[in-house]
Amino acid sequence: MAGFRSTTSYIASRDLEVAVNAAVTLQRPLLVKGEPGTGKTVLAQEVARALGRNLIEWHIKSTTKAQQGLYEYDAVSRLRDGQLGDERVHDIGNYIIRGKLWEAFAADEQQVLLIDEIDKADIEFPNDLLLELDRMQFHVYETRETVVAKHRPIVIITSNNEKELPDAFLRRCFFHYIRFPDRETMERIVQAHFPDIKQELAREALNVFFQVRGVAELKKKPATSELLDWLKLLMIEDLPPEVLRSQDPRTAIPPLYGALLKNEQDVQLFERLAFLSRRQQR
């Protein structure tokens, strides 16, 4: 079985590999949850690349309706064409606009379909897709045809846990919760992204990073994507690793902290901690 494995650019834990392979083999959707910035969306891209499939991305917004993934009937332009006496008007099929799901179903080879941030949508959204994802088919009422997937796409769904998903929906999925990587994994991830980073810099940066994450009161803990951004900045600025190591309390806020701390309260918190440690030193 041509399974999904960690690649040079994406480090997947064993349980994630098993979950992906199960979803691929049994042709069921895979639901991925986890802290923001742990690579949920990237996973779909990597799966598509690893399996050599095309990726169709469907990003969900609060206004997205399930129907939009299937198709939309553009009644307005048909009405307009009718008024203008356009020939196209006689075929209703001209006004059916295919959605992402239809695209994936109609493709000649198996596709990877990413339904990104499903929890952003209305609470009924997953329910409206139950049958479609289960049987991989749906009915177009306007043209009275049933669209059946030529090849069942590999469906990857991400959620940020803003809403609870209905049980009936969950029952049809495989589930994986991406844990925040431990230090070893993180080192591998950094290595995968920046193969020519200076070892020392990477080590010091990771020290600082895990220290920052260790502060319990942070409102938004920096995650993998923030670390990678920060490292990129550090490399561009070409900062020497010593800067990160310095125990000088005045620099208790890491350099270029903007990439790690995304909340002014967190920055303040750090300033306060710096202030406290300065006082202790006196």
Binding site: V18, L26, L165, F175
Partner: peptide, 28 residues
């Protein structure tokens, strides 16, 4: 059961654990 039959778990206990977790638990 189908997943096991298809060989996703591959006779490894760890993989079986991962597979059953992905299948049976839907909430972290």
């Amino acid at each position: 059961l189908r997943g096991m039959k298809e060989g996703v778990a591959d006779y490894s206990v760890d993989d079986f654990y991962h597979l059953s977790r992905a299948t049976l638990v839907k909430d972290e």
